[in-house]
Design a protein around this nucleic acid. Sequence first.
DNA 1: ATATATTTTTAGACAAATCTAAAAATATAT
DNA 2: ATATATTTTTAGATTTGTCTAAAAATATAT
Lengths: 219, 219
Amino acid sequence: MIITLTEENYLKAIFHLSQKSEGEVSTNAIAEQIDAKASSVTDMLKKLAEKNLITYIKYKGVKLTENGRLTAVDIVRKHRLWEVFLVDKLNFSWDEVHDIAEQLEHIKSPKLINQLDAFLDFPTYDPHGDPIPNKEGEIVKTNKIMLSKATANADYTCVGVLDSSSDFLKYLDKHQIGLGTDILVVDKEDFDQSMTITIRDKTMIMSKAITNNIYVKKV
Amino acid sequence: MIITLTEENYLKAIFHLSQKSEGEVSTNAIAEQIDAKASSVTDMLKKLAEKNLITYIKYKGVKLTENGRLTAVDIVRKHRLWEVFLVDKLNFSWDEVHDIAEQLEHIKSPKLINQLDAFLDFPTYDPHGDPIPNKEGEIVKTNKIMLSKATANADYTCVGVLDSSSDFLKYLDKHQIGLGTDILVVDKEDFDQSMTITIRDKTMIMSKAITNNIYVKKV
DNA sequence: ATATATTTTTAGACAAATCTAAAAATATAT
DNA sequence: ATATATTTTTAGATTTGTCTAAAAATATAT
């Protein structure tokens, strides 16, 4: 069955939205993610349901079918492998790769992806710390938590970011925070939930807007 | 100015056709190359002329403008660089790369192509012996000739192929002919223009259908 | 419980790229 | 030079993905 580029983007959007919260994904949420009008989304949902990629009940939102999930995960796999390629082989920085990978993820050739995977030495995480699904569509789950949920007086390591927009990644670069950076949570302010943290013996304060976008693991 | 994927394919087709013969390119020739109906081509030619990518006079065929030529050459550059990547880095064989490069050539990111170029060590020829245009759109001209035009009792080296279809390339692989293979032309039959050649001390006969698709250089 | 707000869907229109069928222009052959 | 063949264009329809505006369904608030 032929799946168009647009359909692929819808499937990916639905997949990402269903990762964020349980249950059905709403039309409006998809519209926002895709940057389209809700009416356009409704049209597309009918097509995807017709192709058995989603289950769709009017006014009730959608869910990916097994088929749809596998298709979406395959796109995510390609996206993340290409990001590794761009950073590891072509010397891109982690804030530059998203838009290019967004294009490359639609290239259709199973052999290409398998060879790329081998060429990159079968990476398990992309440059933002997101896991790379395997060929069977399985995704490893790491017990990462949001930095904002970390407890005071404990050591953590940065293992990923939620927001991989260029602006946020540049902020992290500026403060020399990357994957593997050790973070000591010194204090958490009750009032605005800002945090005092220590990185390489330098202490700084981070707003919740920041700590809510950094994934850490207890060390 | 935004150039769609379809427009890019038309420009590339016109470019390749104008390489083959002087003067204007005909609507039918484009239709055949693109595998579309002549009426569709006419519609597209109007659009391309509107965008100043071609000069188009009704019933008189088309020519690329400087702008159109640069756009087409850039696509060819990308196509050939990706082919080098696939063969040199991902271990594809030369008969497998065309269709994938056909997709990759449309990825839009100047930085990506420049970094790829550097990563591949600035190659000048693709896996089929076709020259890779430089950033400025210049293409080196080699004094290659068709094997069918070669003279008897002279030494040549294979430097390229005209037909880079999978079937033809597999024929060459089977007979262990590749870029750099030395070919001694022993005799040329007047009747059917078949040739007796010697490759690594093994003599064989090649029909004109074959010799017409192999580029050689006198050695 | 009823009015109000929000979300979602429908209806109809539009742009891009294609097609078929027919008309117009150009080329070829006797 | 005139009839015939070929090439190219036009006209009108179709598909995909989008939109706006209005209607329908669902959710929220008093």
